[in-house]
Amino acid sequence: MTMQIADSVSLSAPDARARAHAAAARNNLRTEPKAVRIVIIALAVIFLTMFVVLPLALVFAQAFSRGVLAYLSALADPEALSAIKLTLVVAAISVGLNLVFGLVAAWAIAKFEFSGKTFLITLIDLPFSVSPVISGLVFVLLFGAQGYFGGWLRDHDIQILFAVPGIALATTFVTFPFVARALIPLMQEQGTQEEEAAISLGASGLQTFFRVTLPNIKWGVLYGVLLCNARAMGEFGAVSVVSGHIRGETNTMPLLVEILYNEYQFVAAFAIASLLAMLALITLIAKTVLENHLDEGHDASEH
């Protein structure tokens, strides 16, 4: 026995050394020479600066180019205020609708088996694959004066196109997938066992939803709402087609930015743009925070 132990000890020392060598060699293989590393990192930094940081900085530089007062008065302009208000209203409507649609769709897909499920998932993704301009045109075809429902709507004195309902509809369509997409994988991963447990303990459907399902997906819901909201406020193409660009009435912030820019009112255009840029920054920060929470949720569910 003693002999064996001695043997293994004397063997282990060179063994360890050999292993260290091998590890060092592996590291060398993975590590590029210093010069190459610097070049690659520099390229990435230059690229990011030129395409992300610089434009963002320019937006704010232009917005404040005539001072804070000019910036504030541009934002206080009635047209600007109306655009901000309309954007907020439209975002609230479409986020609200998509929250309900997304929850229902994700619930159906994740918790039940039915035929046509794959088709439904594809359908949910449709707004992502269709150009927003086309989405807008569809609504014109449906609700426009020459559209399918145009005559009926005119007879009943209902205004959809060139008004808030049309803008809200187009925005809702374009942003439909966000909430559902955020929830489907999460709910599929969580399965149906907790709901089954709740029901066998005597909970009603609503109690099960509000006490078990919703708390489990709340971070996912917030994540979907956040992305949905960012897109809803920033949507240009679909809204541009259905809005009619009536000044002070049907212009959202992105539309107003374009109009002001075309009229060479750079300070006003960039002032509005700076608001959208800030929305983007806040969204990014909130997204990072939410993603951390989502990861924690995943860890906790792993056994």
Binding site: Q193, E194, E196, A197, A198, S200, L201, G202, A203, S204, Q207, R211, V212, P215, N216, A300, S301, H303
Partner: peptide, 25 residues
């Protein structure tokens, strides 16, 4: 009373609230 293979405890509730669930609903 049903006991699941993978427990199916409510992950966002404490042990106490898990046991209390059936009484609270």
């Amino acid at each position: 009373g049903f006991v699941f293979q993978h427990y199916a405890l409510f992950r966002h509730m404490t042990v106490f609230e898990n046991v209390a669930f059936g009484l609270r609903v």
